[in-house]
Amino acid sequence: MFDTIMVPVDGSKYSDKAIDYAIAIAEKFNSKIVAVHVLKEFSANSYDNEEDKGDDLLGKVTEKANNAGVSTIEHLITGDPLRDMATIVRKTRADLVIMHAFGSDTFDDDLNENQIGSVSERVIRTGNVPVLLIK
Rank of each mutant, 00 (worst) to 15 (best):
residue 3 D to T: 04
residue 3 D to S: 05
residue 4 T to D: 08
residue 5 I to Y: 03
residue 7 V to P: 02
residue 8 P to C: 06
residue 9 V to Y: 00
residue 9 V to N: 00
residue 10 D to G: 00
residue 10 D to W: 02
residue 13 K to C: 03
residue 14 Y to W: 13
residue 14 Y to N: 08
residue 14 Y to A: 06
residue 15 S to Y: 03
residue 17 K to H: 03
residue 20 D to I: 08
residue 21 Y to T: 06
residue 21 Y to F: 11
residue 22 A to F: 02
residue 23 I to M: 06
residue 24 A to S: 10
residue 25 I to R: 00
residue 26 A to C: 00
residue 27 E to Q: 13
residue 28 K to A: 07
residue 28 K to D: 08
residue 31 S to W: 09
residue 31 S to K: 02
residue 33 I to E: 07
residue 34 V to K: 11
residue 34 V to D: 10
residue 34 V to I: 14
residue 35 A to T: 02
residue 37 H to K: 09
residue 39 L to S: 03
residue 40 K to S: 12
residue 40 K to N: 15
residue 41 E to C: 07
residue 43 S to M: 11
residue 46 S to I: 09
residue 48 D to G: 10
residue 48 D to R: 13
residue 51 E to T: 07
residue 51 E to K: 15
residue 52 D to Y: 13
residue 52 D to M: 15
residue 53 K to R: 14
residue 53 K to L: 14
residue 54 G to W: 09
residue 54 G to N: 06
residue 54 G to R: 07
residue 54 G to Q: 07
residue 56 D to Q: 10
residue 56 D to C: 02
residue 57 L to Q: 03
residue 58 L to C: 01
residue 58 L to M: 03
residue 58 L to N: 03
residue 58 L to W: 04
residue 60 K to R: 13
residue 60 K to T: 12
residue 61 V to A: 02
residue 63 E to P: 00
residue 63 E to I: 04
residue 66 N to P: 03
residue 66 N to W: 04
residue 67 N to R: 15
residue 68 A to M: 07
residue 68 A to Q: 05
residue 69 G to I: 11
residue 70 V to Q: 01
residue 71 S to L: 13
residue 71 S to R: 10
residue 72 T to L: 11
residue 73 I to Y: 13
residue 73 I to A: 14
residue 76 L to F: 00
residue 77 I to Y: 05
residue 77 I to F: 05
residue 79 G to N: 13
residue 79 G to R: 12
residue 79 G to C: 12
residue 80 D to L: 09
residue 81 P to R: 09
residue 82 L to T: 09
residue 82 L to F: 15
residue 83 R to F: 12
residue 83 R to K: 15
residue 83 R to P: 10
residue 86 A to G: 12
residue 87 T to K: 13
residue 87 T to Y: 08
residue 88 I to Y: 07
residue 90 R to Q: 15
residue 92 T to S: 12
residue 92 T to E: 11
residue 93 R to V: 12
residue 96 L to E: 10
residue 97 V to C: 04
residue 97 V to K: 00
residue 98 I to L: 01
residue 98 I to D: 04
residue 98 I to S: 00
residue 100 H to Y: 07
residue 101 A to T: 01
residue 101 A to P: 00
residue 102 F to V: 09
residue 103 G to N: 06
residue 104 S to N: 04
residue 105 D to W: 01
residue 106 T to G: 14
residue 106 T to F: 14
residue 106 T to Q: 15
residue 107 F to N: 07
residue 107 F to D: 11
residue 109 D to H: 07
residue 110 D to T: 13
residue 110 D to P: 05
residue 112 N to P: 05
residue 113 E to F: 13
residue 115 Q to S: 07
residue 116 I to L: 10
residue 116 I to Q: 01
residue 117 G to C: 05
residue 118 S to T: 09
residue 119 V to E: 03
residue 121 E to Y: 13
residue 122 R to A: 10
residue 123 V to S: 03
residue 123 V to P: 02
residue 124 I to T: 09
residue 125 R to S: 12
residue 125 R to L: 14
residue 125 R to W: 08
residue 126 T to I: 12
residue 127 G to H: 09
residue 127 G to P: 06
residue 129 V to K: 08
residue 129 V to Y: 08
residue 129 V to T: 07
residue 130 P to N: 06
residue 134 I to F: 06
residue 135 K to D: 14
